[in-house]
């Protein structure tokens, strides 16, 4: 364990949205084994699930890296998808660029990023159109 940080890595398959949620399910189990407060586990699970779904439907797949320290849970989603042209707009509730296909499957309500912001203590997005997106979520263990 380097500097008291546990690192976990998950590949997120961009072609199969039905398995999205597996990484968040695993993290829930890990956090329970660490004895983290259930309310914090729930916030982590919800924001992480949203992040996974985003990585599948917008990023066309990518990776999730999780860093757990005694103070915080840091989750970083990285994809090489189309990127976000206007991050401010993307943060608005109800705004979505989901494809017609994704909408047919019930996604694209425009609540993904707003929900992540609501449940995480910090949300940082970096994106270059045409190159990809990095989304960082931070949830404090001691609120």
């Amino acid at each position: 364990m380097n500097n008291n940080i546990i690192t976990l890595h998950y590949d997120i398959d961009g072609t199969n949205f039905t398995i999205a949620g597996q990484a968040s399910s695993n993290i829930k189990k890990v956090l329970k084994q660490l004895g983290v407060d259930p309310a914090i586990i729930r916030r982590t699970a919800i924001s992480m699930y949203e992040g996974e779904i985003n990585t599948v439907i917008h990023g066309k797949g990518g990776v999730a890296d999780i860093y757990i320290s005694p103070d915080q849970i840091r989750i970083v989603f990285t994809d090489h998808g189309p990127g976000i042209a206007d991050i401010e707009k993307a943060m608005q509730e109800g705004f979505s660029t989901a494809s017609a296909e994704a909408r047919e499957l019930g996604f694209g309500a425009g609540m993904g990023l707003p929900n992540m912001k609501k449940y995480a203590d910090a949300l940082n997005i970096e994106s270059t159109p045409g190159e990809g997106t990095t989304v960082e979520l931070i949830i404090n263990i001691h609120s």
Binding site: M1, I6, L34, G35, V36, P70
Partner: peptide
């Protein structure tokens, strides 16, 4: 009832998890 946690102490639990 947390029957799954590896240790009461978070740091020890983290070490065990690793």
């Amino acid at each position: 009832r947390n029957v799954m946690n590896l240790d009461e102490d978070l740091l020890i639990a983290m070490q065990k998890l690793e």
